[in-house]
Amino acid sequence: MTEATILSWLDEVKDPEIPVVSLVDLGVIRRVQIAPDGHVSVWMTPTFSGCPAMDYMRRDVERVLCEHGVANHTVSMSLEEAWSSNDVTERGRQALREFRLSPPPPHQGIIDLDILEYAECPHCGSHNTELRSPFGPTLCRALHYCFDCRQGFEQFKPV
């Protein structure tokens, strides 16, 4: 068993509200470490600090470890390395697009109004869109509107 093996198991764990993206691709799994005595530690970090799905995600990670026979483990939440939407992998972004959720635009660490308001329409690919509300059905989503295909859509917010 290696750290890479554990990461591949954790790929089974999806975001409960966006069931197409794994926690690994979302960037929520920060680090996996196997101690010399075999103890497995997994560090996770929340996307949004008030996200009610985090407890479910942590329990899912513990369940997957147990299913693979790793009884000796610790799964902890840490803000040491705060989550940024830049941590979503390319594979994760593609899965979001296919789920018709606009992926978060990459940024240089400074999130200004241009970045907050920008979104690519996941239906037609247009950039002729408008931010309607920074708050959507979950904390991590914003509501946008596309002027080309004339549909509302949601975006995974840049943070």
């Binding site: 929340p46 008030g50 009610p52 509300s133 920074p134 708050f135 959507g136 904390l139 509501l143």
Partner: peptide, 20 residues
Amino acid sequence: LEEDIAFSSMAQDKLGHALQ
């Protein structure tokens, strides 16, 4: 509706902040 969602979302954020 959007404002209902916005204030509820901000409530959720603030409770998360309080917990931290």
